[in-house]
Amino acid sequence: MASLFDPLQVGALRLPNRIVMAPLTRNRAPDAIPTPLMAEYYAQRASAGLLVSEGTAVSHQGQGYADVPGLYGTEQLDGWKRVTDAVHARGGRIYCQLWHVGRVSHVELQPEHQQPVAPSPITAKTKTWLVKDGAGGFVPTSEPRALDASELPGIVQDFRHAARHAVTSAGFDGVEVHGANGYLFDQFLKTGTNQRRDDYGGSIPNRARLLLETMRAIVEEIGADRVGLRISPVTPANDIVDADPQPLFEYVVRQLAPLQLAYLHVIEGSTGGPREVEGRPFEYEALRKAWRAAGAKGAWMVNNAYDRPLADQALAEGADLVAFGRLYIANPDLVERLRQGAPLNVPDRKTFYGGGAQGYTDYPAL
């Protein structure tokens, strides 16, 4: 039986273990530029089999929160290069999570204070993070406008360009596309947010079209062995819902299979919450079987509320990688703590979003 501490080939990378640091938004990149403190933070966690960066906007339009990093300007790329160099100096491997938030944004964060964009003009009943007068806080999202079909090829190109810059300029080992948690691709996929009547709305193939076009473009640009995708079939995060997610996501994975991605990253249940979502049943094993039956060879990564026993069980049942999120906030040496069964540091929730070293780089290692 596979162990969390066994090596695994994942696309172009040989991982020394099967523990992944999941993407974690921390709001410590003023002007969307990664800082030296961020380089220290990621380097501290380089013993993970793979680090996946916090969500990183592929364009100014794609930004949804204050002080999150970007990947569309020279200073941003230079900042990320310092981060990846620090991780590689510690022997680590790091992917960049490519992000467009869609409607989960605010006019204050958008170019020229324009409306956020979405598949349909439906405001998200959720909040985003703004910084005013040096203080951060959560505020309701702004009303979005519907994207015109003529704008969608530009979004695909934004992701293509960001993927290329991530690996050629910023030094990342690959990229993960954020298709989860109620952000742009999830908004197109799901019926609660997509009420379009063109080729990008209505049927399952139409709603999946933008995501699949984007994944094909990125694979063409940097190679499938450096590309992953994150999905969340039933999470209610950011006011997202679909009327029938099982056939939707089984269609998506069957269409993705021929691309031979490095991995598929699946959030089980409610992101950061219960693993079973009331009123939203989903068969993850059926999804994995559909992925494999369609010929996919990439790693199957599971995520949400995992501890050591649950991770061991997941590997025994067919998962290849286990992603840990909040445990990595307070435990930079999580790999060794899990290996030894050592006590875990408790994260300080007050420092999750924004701030400096406190609650970020000051958690002790063993």
Rank of each mutant, 00 (worst) to 15 (best):
T191F: 01
D320G: 00
Y41V: 09
Y65A: 12
L211G: 14
G182L: 05
V131I: 15
Q97Y: 09
A170D: 08
Y306S: 10
L51I: 15
Y95K: 10
A124Y: 01
A124L: 03
G137F: 12
F172Y: 11
I329C: 04
K190H: 13
Q255L: 03
P111E: 03
F188H: 09
V131M: 07
G354A: 02
N345Y: 01
R337Q: 07
V175M: 07
Y41S: 06
Y183D: 05
Q340Y: 00
S59A: 13
K81D: 05
D312A: 08
G154V: 06
G11S: 11
F185E: 04
P36H: 10
L327W: 14
Y183G: 06
N206P: 11
Y41W: 13
A286W: 03
D158L: 11
R145K: 11
I33T: 15
P343Q: 06
I222E: 00
L248M: 14
G136R: 10
Q63G: 10
A57P: 01
L315C: 08
W80L: 11
G154F: 09
R82W: 02
N304P: 04
I240F: 00
P247V: 11
E213Q: 15
V83K: 03
K297S: 14
L229A: 07
M38W: 07
W80K: 10
T214Y: 06
G223P: 10
G102S: 09
V68A: 04
M38S: 05
V322E: 02
Y72M: 09
E143D: 14
H178G: 07
I204M: 06
M215N: 01
R308G: 01
A43P: 03
E75V: 05
P121R: 00
L334R: 04
G55M: 12
G11A: 08
V346M: 03
Q260D: 15
P34R: 06
L344D: 03
L109T: 00
P343H: 02
A162H: 10
T235F: 08
G70Q: 06
R337Y: 07
Q63C: 12
R14T: 14
R308M: 05
R160Q: 13
D148A: 15
G202F: 02
L315F: 09
D148N: 12
G102N: 00
D362M: 02
D173V: 12
G49E: 03
R197L: 11
T193Y: 00
Y306P: 04
K297G: 14
F282N: 04
I19K: 03
P258Q: 12
A135C: 06
E317I: 00
D242P: 10
Q61H: 14
L321Y: 01
G137E: 12
N181A: 04
A43C: 05
A305E: 14
P347Q: 03
L189V: 01
F188W: 06
V219H: 07
T235M: 05
V177H: 08
A243E: 15
P119F: 06
I94H: 04
Q61R: 14
G202V: 05
W99P: 04
D333N: 06
Y65R: 12
G355M: 12
D78F: 01
L210I: 08
S53P: 09
L366C: 01
L189H: 13
E151K: 08
T123N: 01
A12V: 09
A22N: 05
P119A: 13
P116L: 00
K190V: 02
V10R: 00
V117K: 09
L344I: 04
R196G: 07
A124R: 00
V139S: 09
P343M: 02
R45S: 10
V20A: 09
H113N: 14
H161G: 02
N238V: 11
